Structures are given as C-alpha cells and as structure tokens.
Simulated scan of single mutants.
Amino acid sequence: MEGQRMATTLHEFTQVLDPKMFPRVLQIQSGIYCQGKSCVYEVFGRECSLSTGDLLKIIDITITRFSARTPSNTEIEIPVEYPGLFKLVADSQPYQSIQEIADSVKISSHRLSQPVFLSGSEIEPAQGVIREGDSFRITAVTRELSGGRVRCELLHREPKICFSLSFSQQGHFTECQDDQFYTLREIAEWKISKVNYLTNKLLIVS
C-alpha cells in the first residue's frame, strides 16, 4: 500500500479505510494463485490475472452484501439486493462538533442523505437562535481550505428558518431516530455512516 510498508488483506484495508483518502494505490504482495504466478479475479463478469508486484488504484468501494449479527449472536450475510425493508437505529452517541458530523455522516442534496439532529444546547447562528431541544435537518455541506460549513433547516417551527453552521461549531448533537423504511441498497448508497459503517444497527420491518 502506498505510504505504508505493512502488508494487509483487502478485507482489513476496507475496515480502516477513510473514504476521503481516495484514490489509493495498492501493490499486490500475495494472493490465491491459480495459474502459474497469477492470481485470477472476476471483474465485471470477466476473468483477469493479477501478479505479485502489480499496482492497483482504488477509486471507490461498493457495498455488495451486509454481514450481520442477530440478537441471538448468529452471523448471516445479506445481499444488497435483498427485497426486504429496514429501519436504521439512531446512534445514541452524541457528536461534539459540526466537523465531527461532516466527517462521519453522508450529507448531500439527495433527500435520503439529509440527516436530522437534536441540539442539546443553545446555538446562535446569524439567522436566529437554535434553542436546546430544537431539531434541524442538514441539507448540504461545503468544504473550504479553512474548514467548511453545513446548511441547515430548523424543523417544527414557523416561519421556516434556514441557517448555516461552521465546522468549528461546538455543541451536543444527537442523531434523531429516522422512522422511514429503506431497502438495503438505499442504506448502502445514502445512509451508512462514513466512519462507523461496520457497526450500524438495522431493524427488519418486512
């Protein structure tokens, strides 16, 4: 792996990977050899041979299945195309800053990727006052050299208040429970957190 001498498996690599570090260059150290000195993989339905010493540029990781542990401690694997519906169980651990939220949670203009948080303290952005106990939806994120900002929409208050918070904003922000139902593909693409994706809790609803 570029910039790191210690060898690791692809499974171990993806467990500690920071998505912000793409692209990453890997060098094949060893594999399961099937044909001479080559390791055979299937890529887009076609076999290709990769040899020790070859370099790979990893540009993205796609979730194809979920490994899960049931309450009875049984381990199962569920393909991302599983037809059932699920609810995400909110993380009870509070975030201490907007920077921490932006680094951990998927945020975009897509409606499925606009998380809602409860403020545990009063905040005074330029556009008004966010009281303790108010909930707000993050609708966009902007990253800059000096940090960044998130655009937000205050919920359950009229008239509607939109405001922005800088990454440096400190507070006590708790993720609100999402009562929507999702397919596993929607969860994989829009809802799995960027940092704790290995410990997300799902509730089967159908």
Results as ranks from 00 to 15, higher is better:
residue 4 Q to D: 13
residue 4 Q to N: 14
residue 8 T to N: 04
residue 12 E to C: 07
residue 13 F to A: 11
residue 14 T to G: 10
residue 15 Q to R: 14
residue 18 D to Y: 07
residue 18 D to C: 15
residue 21 M to A: 15
residue 22 F to S: 13
residue 25 V to M: 10
residue 27 Q to N: 11
residue 29 Q to C: 12
residue 30 S to Y: 06
residue 32 I to C: 07
residue 35 Q to T: 14
residue 40 V to Q: 07
residue 41 Y to E: 06
residue 42 E to D: 08
residue 44 F to R: 13
residue 45 G to Q: 04
residue 48 C to Y: 02
residue 53 G to K: 13
residue 53 G to T: 12
residue 55 L to G: 11
residue 56 L to S: 09
residue 58 I to W: 04
residue 59 I to F: 15
residue 60 D to F: 12
residue 62 T to N: 11
residue 63 I to H: 04
residue 65 R to W: 09
residue 68 A to W: 02
residue 70 T to V: 07
residue 70 T to I: 05
residue 70 T to Y: 02
residue 71 P to F: 05
residue 71 P to T: 07
residue 72 S to M: 08
residue 72 S to F: 07
residue 76 I to N: 10
residue 76 I to A: 07
residue 77 E to F: 09
residue 79 P to M: 05
residue 80 V to F: 00
residue 80 V to A: 04
residue 84 G to N: 08
residue 86 F to R: 03
residue 87 K to P: 03
residue 87 K to Y: 02
residue 89 V to F: 06
residue 92 S to E: 08
residue 92 S to Y: 01
residue 92 S to C: 09
residue 92 S to P: 08
residue 96 Q to A: 13
residue 97 S to R: 03
residue 98 I to P: 01
residue 101 I to Q: 01
residue 102 A to M: 08
residue 103 D to H: 13
residue 103 D to T: 09
residue 105 V to L: 14
residue 106 K to C: 14
residue 106 K to Y: 09
residue 109 S to E: 10
residue 111 R to W: 09
residue 113 S to K: 03
residue 116 V to H: 01
residue 118 L to T: 06
residue 122 E to M: 10
residue 122 E to W: 02
residue 123 I to L: 13
residue 126 A to K: 11
residue 127 Q to P: 03
residue 130 I to F: 00
residue 133 G to R: 03
residue 134 D to K: 00
residue 134 D to S: 05
residue 135 S to A: 08
residue 137 R to W: 03
residue 140 A to L: 05
residue 140 A to Y: 04
residue 145 L to R: 15
residue 147 G to N: 07
residue 147 G to Y: 02
residue 148 G to E: 02
residue 148 G to N: 04
residue 150 V to K: 00
residue 153 E to Q: 10
residue 154 L to T: 00
residue 157 R to G: 06
residue 157 R to H: 11
residue 158 E to N: 12
residue 159 P to D: 08
residue 162 C to L: 04
residue 164 S to P: 00
residue 166 S to Y: 04
residue 167 F to M: 07
residue 167 F to Y: 07
residue 171 G to S: 03
residue 174 T to N: 02
residue 177 Q to C: 01
residue 177 Q to E: 05
residue 178 D to Q: 01
residue 179 D to C: 05
residue 179 D to G: 03
residue 182 Y to D: 01
residue 185 R to A: 04
residue 189 E to M: 09
residue 195 V to W: 08
residue 195 V to S: 14
residue 196 N to Y: 13
residue 196 N to H: 15
residue 199 T to G: 12
residue 203 L to H: 10
residue 204 I to Q: 14
residue 205 V to P: 06
